[in-house]
């Protein structure tokens, strides 16, 4: 009992760290830093899995942890960095709204999540806050996607959402079967690669990765139809 309490405290710390990286994303202006925030986020996620893996000595959790580290912690960040440098997208995240407003909205989201989940699901064993935090991270990731213009920022937002989802699943089931995790990780990897290719392609075609321009495609389509 005592041990698990300690564990839950550690887990809470790590979860809060995950939330903090997500919140920090709201204020970052350099794309490089965004990618960094994601890297930290993934490492924290790795730690979160590693803790129960060590305590329960469960081999499949080891596998899950190492896979998380390998893909989310190393491969994807490297790939994103490469795109960022290759495309010279170093600066200017250019949100629709100011950083302050974005931060406030994130706060409101977190409040709503905490308020609505306080008496909801009783989290079994793992961590008191992990579920709430994970959902908050999903929503913040979504918010980032909404409020940012660049395709690459949206990818980052998507990745945060994915981490949030991963955390949700983990906190509810204390680890999914390894095959599912494998599948998910592979999916995410593919997703990021494809999106990367898309970003390059969009840049190629429209000389910009600004998604505001995508509405013009839509307009052209409607004029064609009309």
């Amino acid at each position: 009992m005592e041990k698990s309490f300690d564990l839950s405290l550690v887990n809470d710390f790590i979860s809060v760290g995950i939330l903090l990286t997500a919140i920090a994303l709201n204020t970052l202006e350099r794309l490089e830093s965004c990618v960094k925030a994601y890297t930290y986020n993934s490492w924290l996620l790795f730690l979160l899995i590693l803790v129960p893996a060590v305590t329960t000595n469960n081999p499949h959790l080891y596998v899950a942890a190492s896979l998380t580290l390998a893909t989310k912690g190393i491969v994807i960040p490297l790939f994103l960095r490469k795109i960022v440098y290759q495309q010279k997208l170093v600066h200017q995240v250019q949100p629709y709204i100011s950083n302050l407003l974005s931060l406030t909205l994130s706060g409101i989201l977190i409040t709503i999540v905490y308020a609505s989940l306080s008496k909801g699901i009783s989290v079994t064993g793992f961590s008191n806050h992990a579920l709430k935090i994970s959902i908050a991270v999903i929503l913040i990731g979504l918010l980032i996607m909404i409020t940012r213009r660049k395709a690459i920022t949206m990818v980052v937002g998507l990745l945060f959402m994915e981490n949030g989802l991963f955390l949700t699943g983990f906190s509810l089931t204390s680890g999914m079967p390894v095959i599912i995790e494998l599948g998910i990780l592979f999916d995410v990897l593919m997703c990021v690669i494809i999106l990367g290719v898309f970003i390059i392609q969009i840049r190629h075609k429209f000389y910009s990765v600004d998604l505001d321009k995508s509405t013009t495609i839509h307009d052209q389509l409607t004029t064609l139809k009309g």
Binding site: V113, L139, L142, I146, M154, D212, S214, H218
Partner: peptide, 19 residues
């Protein structure tokens, strides 16, 4: 509108309302 952000906004709004 074809605006990706707006679509995402719908999703967020739906999620929050659901919550």
């Amino acid at each position: 509108s074809g605006d990706l952000h707006l679509y995402l906004g719908y999703i967020l709004a739906t999620l929050i309302l659901l919550l």
